[in-house]
Design a protein around this nucleic acid. Structure first.
Lengths: 355, 355
DNA sequence: CTGTTAGCGCGTTCAA
DNA sequence: TTGAACGCGCTAACAG
């Protein structure tokens, strides 16, 4: 049972952490399996990766030894030797935000079916943090990167280019993508909602988003809103544009502030996060009729939007699908594909009771 | 600029994926840096990991070469050589569930500050899937595992034991933990809420949870509810106990069903997911007064609970803190600690307007 | 403070 | 169909 010739284990462990028992790395190596099965190292390697190239007989005896010993392959060594990797890195702005969670889920599912795994981190929307993470992920020799942000530091760009790893950007449709893109247009989506509100007769349409200086997606949405107003022939009014922090409370405050300052506002488009839900609850508390006194529209279609009273009009973005398609595009490239697709998955407007 | 002596690159790429240009793995190696700086391999290695052991002069010249060449260390090779790992694996029941997202966030933050990274996957609450993931993560030679589920297959247990990796369980306080535990008691929490409802005068207290057969946490909560009833001297009634699927809609239906079948029910404790919120919205739609007609209580303290009308009474569980402390316990072990802490982070009851 | 030697556990290559 | 030699890129151990 005990593998011989391994004085290194006890030595190392003793040197490193004192004379502890709980020594990590007890695992058997391929060589141990080979000995147990009476074959060479390579035969074990093949039995695990290319079983069809072995005779049924030897394959079976090898697998028996594998199970008996409880051998767990060392894919880190495999990766080093083969110069491949079965890990993909994904960086989202926030791990806690459920919208990104959908995308991560889509990615993880597809990758997993292909035998790949997901290294996940969040950048907090900071390009500097993203740069550090990209460096760390490249050091892990990830097979690919999936980035939500489309703004990257020069150093990040340089590292990515030098590494040659395939990259997917998922947060918007950038003019000059790094490589592959799987996303939707924030500007088009915001414009579409603005036009939708206009078509329903609203004339004084407010716009509330997250910080447009730090967040390109918020900036694009603002641009779309402005384009929408223009198409509608409505006059832009700085008093009807606000930027706030994420959160339900922010949405509530934004609505109250805007109505207080501009009592003639008749609709507010909350272009992000859970702002619209927060506003709706505040309207309930204050007894403001939605949509009669004030119409409210949100961005993503959160589950809750169809359960509130009234139900919330919003955009529906293909978050999960973005994750899936990103992973699929990555897989295609890893399998030898040479394309750099730019996939626009679009969006839908979901008209409900709040507008 | 171009590194010589690397015919292997073009050869391999050509063989593998046809005569493509986009060859991955262009990265410089440590040897290239050593040559450029006119030092040995080891000096570069030290400059990167133990800079204080070098003279200021050589350190600087090495770092210059590193930056000039754009060298990105290969931590996969480093891990293999040093028999260490800078990746931790975490398996949660669902990536999309925001509660687990909090835990993941806590873990990721602490790990990242320590230079470790997070391999994330979801098991969908299936022990079989968890087993497969554990195998895959062990193959990646993760430095540790953080598992939410406390039920594991025999094979999973065997693999973990053989590997010797430290493990944290976070979903409950198991009687016989695998190794370390950072969690809270589902049974105690559910009992506490039941007692709380009893103390507020409710006599016919319903209980709605997720599937107790597949989910030990739901089972523990049911046990706590039953213990609470007993303490209160209330008679258990099978009609007041339901198991449903997750989701807002499930909560709504559960409430309606229970009230229809047992009109005398005066409070419902929704022991999981967003069930309570869904029920509250349904009550709003039907004009049922909360808490006068029916009191509603939830489990976790979701953001939304303090924004609904009325605000929702619930338990508050330290999800983020569980993630943080898990990572910290793991780090302590990796740094040579020998303890197997069992951390009970407790819970709080947040009394609001709905009960 | 710096370099040399040996080898981490596996895959690739080529020969048998 | 199987095996031996070699190396992936780096670090540990020791020597100077």
């Amino acid at each position: 049972m005990a593998s011989n010739q391994r004085a290194r284990q006890s030595t190392q462990a003793g040197a490193q952490v004192g004379a502890r028992v709980r020594t990590s790395g007890q695992g058997a190596r391929m060589r141990d399996v080979a000995q147990a099965a009476g074959v060479s190292l390579m035969t074990v390697s093949r039995a695990l990766r290319e079983p069809h190239k072995l005779s049924e007989e030897t394959r079976k005896s090898v697998m028996d030894a594998v199970h008996k010993i409880g051998y767990v392959p060392n894919s880190i060594a495999a990766n080093l030797a083969s110069n491949r990797s079965n890990v993909v890195g994904q960086i989202v702005p926030s791990i806690q935000n459920s919208l990104y969670a959908d995308t991560v889920k889509g990615t993880a599912d597809v990758l997993r079916k292909a035998g790949l795994h997901l290294l996940l981190a969040d950048s907090g929307s900071s390009p500097q943090e993203e740069e550090a993470l990209i460096g760390a992920f490249l050091a892990q020799r990830v097979a690919g990167l999936i980035l939500h942000n489309t703004d990257h530091t020069p150093k990040a760009l340089q590292m990515i280019e030098r590494s040659g790893v395939p990259v997917i950007e998922t947060g918007d449709l950038p003019r000059h993508p790094l490589d592959m893109v799987v996303s939707y247009s924030n500007a088009e989506a915001a414009k579409a909602m603005t036009l939708h509100l206009g078509a329903r007769g609203y004339k004084r349409i407010g716009f509330v988003s997250l910080d447009t200086r730090l967040n390109r997606r918020a900036r694009e949405r603002l641009r779309g809103y402005q384009a929408g107003l223009k198409s509608l022939g409505l006059r832009p009014d700085p008093m009807l544009v606000m930027e706030v922090a994420p959160g339900l409370t922010s949405g509530a405050h934004a609505m109250v502030d805007m109505i207080t300052r501009s009592p003639d506002v008749d609709a507010i488009f909350f272009a992000g996060d859970v702002l619209a839900v927060g506003a709706l609850f505040e309207a309930q508390r204050r007894g403001w009729k939605v949509p009669d006194r004030i119409a409210l529209a949100g961005f993503d279609d959160l589950d809750i939007h169809q359960h509130t009273v009234p139900k919330l009009t919003c955009l529906r973005l293909p978050r999960l699908e973005i994750g899936r398609r990103s992973a699929e595009a990555l897989l295609a490239r890893l399998r030898g594909g040479d394309e750099a697709p730019r996939v626009d998955l679009g969006f839908e407007i979901t008209q409900r009771e709040s507008t």
